[in-house]
């Protein structure tokens, strides 16, 4: 509380504020900017308010049509679901094979020169900035609809992710331990097996399993553009307005994704 009695030389306490003027101004402007940006964005979308108002009803109706899920249909989605897991596993395997040399180029301490380092970084960011469904669109045009396009989409999307994390892992290894193995008279392969591999193994397995887990989720959607897996089936059921079947598929996806997440977390704990 400010003491306002300024007679007789009594000290006047300044008014207390949380921040000084510039900080407050910057914060205020930041907030104002954020709010106006949101308003602008909202108006730019041109969404009609009555649609928004009816959203809860619409969603409830949609669920009404879906519920109860079509249990009898469960048998039909086993195969596409297996394909989804297939795409994730094979896609991750392919990505690992292709990511190993890229990581080698993209790690500061193993890359031969600046040019190769740049190439490594370019492949990493190129692969990461194109979403797997876009890769799927491209590969469906090349290889036709089906699992193959899906696998390649997952592979190409994952290269950058795996290579980036692996390169970081390689950059962090303890060089003196590698040197110590060399000092015992071990050959290059011995140095690799005893000096380098043990240091990056756990990280590598963790990265691979983690990416596989992400890829299971990705593999559920690439079917929407025809690249195989459960997405194809989902698309078909939606186009046929077979809502109970759609709910069955959604629940199945939920189950598979949660299980793979659990498996991945467990495996990563084991290798640490």
């Amino acid at each position: 509380m400010a003491d306002t009695e300024d007679r007789d030389g009594v000290t006047e306490y300044p008014e207390w504020n949380r921040h000084d003027v510039t900080t407050r101004l910057v914060r205020f402007l930041g907030l104002l900017g954020a709010v106006s940006l949101t308003v602008l964005a909202w108006r730019g979308l041109g969404v009609r308010y009555e649609y928004v108002a009816s959203a809860p009803t619409e969603i409830r109706n949609l669920f009404g049509r879906m519920y109860p899920p079509d249990v009898a249909y469960t048998g039909d989605i086993v195969t596409p679901m297996l394909h989804t897991v297939n795409i994730a596993v094979v896609g991750t395997l392919g990505a690992i094979c292709l990511a190993l040399p890229v990581a080698y180029l993209g790690a500061r301490n193993t890359t031969p020169n600046d040019a190769t380092y740049a190439i490594g970084k370019l492949i990493i960011s190129g692969s990461r900035s194109v979403h797997s469904i876009i890769w799927a669109l491209v590969f469906v045009i090349m290889f036709g609809t089906g699992v193959l396009a899906g696998i390649l989409a997952v592979t190409f999307r994952s290269i950058g992710f795996i290579a980036k994390l692996l390169a970081e892992e390689i950059e962090e290894i303890d060089e003196t331990a590698v040197e110590a193995v060399r000092a015992t008279g071990g050959g290059p392969l011995d140095v690799l097996i005893y000096g380098v591999v043990p240091q990056v193994k756990a990280g590598f397995v963790g990265i691979a399993v983690y990416r596989w887990d992400i890829n299971v989720r990705e593999a559920t959607i690439i079917g929407l553009v025809g690249a195989g897996g459960i997405g194809v089936e989902l698309n078909n059921r939606i186009n046929a307005f077979d809502w109970p079947a759609v709910l069955t598929i959604l629940l199945a996806i939920l189950a598979v994704v949660l299980v793979s997440e659990f498996v991945s977390a467990y495996a990563r704990r084991m290798v640490r």
Binding site: D174, T176, A180, A183, G185, G187, Y194, P198, K201, A202
Partner: peptide
């Protein structure tokens, strides 16, 4: 050189063990 290094033991400053082994 590798054959010769077998006959020279070396002990390092920061131990230089492979920690995960």
């Amino acid at each position: 050189l590798r054959a010769a290094r077998r006959e020279i033991g070396m002990v390092f400053q920061e131990y230089a063990l492979v920690e995960r082994l």
